[in-house]
């Protein structure tokens, strides 16, 4: 078994309408329950706005603190899910379902260490 990071990328700008948001959240709930019941759920959550981020950067023995995200861009990491899956095909299938539920692009990336169990 391997762990895969499913990164959810979202565009800058206002959140969807409350009505749309409720529908998305309901679908994400269904997905999470399905992941849990198949023993595939490891962790996942949405993130606050990138403006709430703080970056720590080592510079000549000191660690410098700056306000804001590491990189500014049109898209940012809006949240992520870690799933446990037997192979990439299984992870991609979860990724496909997240892409449909969130209507956002999903990056699927393997973790370096094999998952135990």
């Amino acid at each position: 078994m391997k762990n895969y990071l499913l990164s959810i990328y979202q565009p800058q700008g206002p959140a969807p309408e409350p009505e749309t948001m409720r529908k998305i959240m309901a679908e994400l709930d269904v997905l999470r329950r399905e992941l849990e019941s198949t023993g595939s759920w490891v962790f996942g959550d949405g993130l606050h706005d990138p403006a709430t981020a703080t970056v720590l950067r080592p510079t000549g023995g000191e660690v410098l603190m700056t306000d804001g995200p590491f990189a500014e861009g049109k898209e940012h990491l809006g949240g992520f899910v870690i799933v446990r899956a037997p192979d990439l095909d299984a992870a991609l299938e979860w990724g496909r379902r997240y892409a449909q539920a969130t209507t956002l692009p999903i990056e699927v990336r393997p973790f370096a260490t094999e998952a135990g169990g």
């Binding site: 037997p86 990439l88 095909d89 393997p110 370096a112």
Partner: peptide, 14 residues
């Protein structure tokens, strides 16, 4: 190897 692309014939559905 690293992403775990499986070495098998896909299921009928895929």
């Amino acid at each position: 190897r690293d992403a775990g692309i499986p070495y098998r014939v896909p299921s009928d559905a895929d």
